[in-house]
């Protein structure tokens, strides 16, 4: 997406949240579209899974759409991200094509990874997504490496590392934040704290009450935001990205959010109460909140929002059809891509 422009909003701009002061209407609608696209994609993937069309398991990010979309708003297509096992939302937020994502989940050759990676390794290098990762904390040092390249080769790119609350206790997290700070690298660390590392709450696993508290240990700014407030997330991201681009080094953003579904498709949700889940779903849904704001600030009315929903549904349906019709890889090609073919 294009760099944010200072565009006047529909009404008096001085009291509006950040988002509405910095992004033109079409960008705002684009963000809504992407949030719906994530939500509907996850639901459709879930349905396909329940029908036995998807092998393995999946980690759904329903409820975390504002975090993914908000963080990616200030990024260019060339900026890079690394993601987690819960990476479908990040992939879409960074600009991926859902039909190629479905194709990947169905194990087809037209998938982003040629059917070899699946949900946990979904990637779209053309839009800067270096991949979801099956190892908790696996992508954090890799993002720092991408930032090192940006600095060495002076490309001006910024790298964003998405990870969850669980990852903040992995050694790789600490090593990566330390190095990024020591070397002042253009990387933004984004922790999507949804309260649980699989079944273990942050209270039971993390020594500090907020993951952002750990930023101080690595001499970088640590910011806590309501991860379900698109504007708040976008603002924090904007500041961190600009800081990185100025060469001032890394930042840590903690998005407080919640996942509606269990950790994976095998999760029975025994570790949290139905009331808690219902409360987040009913009262703090990021899409509902955004739509309310768009309406309140006169950016988009019910009809336009419905149009976005319908367009997204059509895009999802077409994506599934594409995936179903795509070919599966040949067994003979098993060993392709282990190494780089050399002439």
């Amino acid at each position: 997406m294009t760099a944010p422009a200072t565009a006047p909003a529909a009404t008096d701009s001085t009291n509006l949240p950040f988002l509405y002061r910095h992004y033109p209407r079409e960008e705002l609608l684009g963000a809504l579209r992407r949030m719906h696209l994530i939500r509907r994609f996850e639901e459709a993937a879930e349905e396909s899974y329940m029908r036995g069309l998807i092998h393995g398991t999946m980690h759904l990010s329903i409820g975390q759409e504002a975090s993914a979309v908000g963080i990616c708003l200030p990024l260019t297509r060339e900026d890079q991200i690394t993601s987690t096992h819960r990476g479908h939302g990040h992939c879409i937020a960074k600009g991926a094509d859902v039909s190629r994502m479905f194709a990947e989940f169905f194990g087809k050759t037209t998938g982003y990874c040629g059917g070899r990676g699946g949900s946990m390794h979904i990637a779209d290098v053309s839009t800067g997504n270096l991949g979801a990762n099956g190892i908790v904390g696996g992508g954090i040092p890799i993002a720092v490496g991408a930032a090192l390249t940006a600095k060495r080769l002076r490309t001006g790119k910024v790298a964003v590392s998405f990870f969850g609350d669980g990852a903040n206790n992995e050694g790789a997290f600490h090593e990566a934040l330390n190095m990024a700070s020591v070397w002042k690298l253009p990387v933004v660390f984004v922790c999507e704290n949804n309260g649980y590392g699989m079944s273990t709450s942050t209270e039971r696993s993390t020594a500090v009450p907020n993951i952002a508290d750990r930023a101080a240990a690595y001499a970088m700014p640590g910011v806590i935001v309501d991860g379900n407030d698109l504007s708040a997330v976008a603002q924090a991201s904007h500041e961190a990205v600009e800081r990185a681009r100025r060469g001032e080094g890394p930042s840590l953003i903690e998005c407080k959010t919640y996942r509606h579904r269990g950790h994976s498709k095998s999760d029975r949700n025994r570790y949290r109460t139905k009331d808690e889940i219902d409360d987040w779903m009913a009262n703090r849904d990021p899409i509902a909140r955004y739509e309310a704001q768009l309406s309140e600030f006169g950016i988009a009315g019910a009809a336009e929002i419905e149009a976005v929903r319908l367009a997204v549904r059509a895009e999802i349906d077409a994506g599934i059809e594409f995936a179903k019709a795509s070919p599966a890889p040949a067994t003979a090609d098993l060993a392709d891509y282990v190494y780089t073919e050399q002439q």
Binding site: Q80, T82, L130, G138, I140, P141, I142, A143, V144, G145, A146, A147, L148, T149, A150, R152, A159, G171, A172, H174, E175, A176, N178, M179
Partner: peptide, 12 residues
Amino acid sequence: GGAGVAVGAAVT
């Protein structure tokens, strides 16, 4: 972390 930084740098 260092090996991971090297991997990320190599990929990019």
